[in-house]
Design a binder for these strands. Sequence first.
DNA 1: TCTCTTATCGCAAGCATTCGCAGGAGCGTA
DNA 2: TACGCTCCTGCGAATGCTTGCGATAAGAGA
Lengths: 163, 163
Amino acid sequence: MQQQSAAAAIRSAGRRLTPQRMLVLEAVGALGGHVPVERIAAHVQQTAPQVDVATVYRTVALLSRLHLLNEVQVGGVSHYEVADPSDRHGHMVCEHCGATFHLPPGYLDRLRSRLLKDKGFDLHPEHVTVSGLCTACRSDEQHSHSGHTHTGASSHSHTGSEA
Amino acid sequence: MQQQSAAAAIRSAGRRLTPQRMLVLEAVGALGGHVPVERIAAHVQQTAPQVDVATVYRTVALLSRLHLLNEVQVGGVSHYEVADPSDRHGHMVCEHCGATFHLPPGYLDRLRSRLLKDKGFDLHPEHVTVSGLCTACRSDEQHSHSGHTHTGASSHSHTGSEA
DNA sequence: TCTCTTATCGCAAGCATTCGCAGGAGCGTA
DNA sequence: TACGCTCCTGCGAATGCTTGCGATAAGAGA
């Protein structure tokens, strides 16, 4: 399944199929969800300790370009997930707690067609990351009206798909 | 004008008004558009060479949290612009050439209200950055159908407000 | 105006990420 | 199956951003 077609995609893009590349793909799949490079590298190195982090960085960059992985920026840090062409969802990131939620593609259809028509801009739903406040953090704000400054991290730390 | 209210906002947030902070604000305003930290630091240091880059980084982070600057991620690099509460626009970034365009707030109204109703997520329009392909790069793609890999930078380099 | 508290600054060390290079390994071709 | 062209990789060095810390100065209160 999965890995097969990924291997084919790498080949057909004129790139070489190497053990390191397959290990990175497997790692992201095995870890699931949105994974930072740090964890990908750690997972890969359990199997193949000689693989350098530089290779992992280069590989995730390549796989993103080939649309085999999606990159999600959470507070300026890149996370990766396995790209599924049948589910081109975007992401919502809470500015306060850093939680990440899926943004179903249906929500972007209208925006996409309007931008294409009006501006000629072809929006890629799976590369969309919008930020704002999740339910939990909105109610926090309401209660604790002390002028606390958002640090853009910490607090709760869900990573579910429901805000 | 501008600087006055910014100064007031810093004070009312309980932070101190320092020459360094005003210099950073002035620099972003003077340079205009979406400015990377590197250029902000260079501009500030023309006036005050002793100001450290670390200070500039800390300052833009603070000013972003206070909504006096907006952060725009272009290919993983943070750029900043002066925040105008009366024009809470988002941004569109071309994945191919890296060009940045304004996304008028009207385009996000419907998405915003739907997310709030369905998911309880309060989207901040001025923090939205969507990515895709701009008009110029879409027509490039059509013509040169060689399997060239997008490097996510270079090529044309508009920074206007029309895709 | 002077004093005091502590947020902020400059400096330098610490990390994460990227770059440059030389050796090694895919994979197309014969 | 063997050969050879390049792409990739691992390594070490460089870059760029962040953090810790002592010194400084903003701004509240007397």
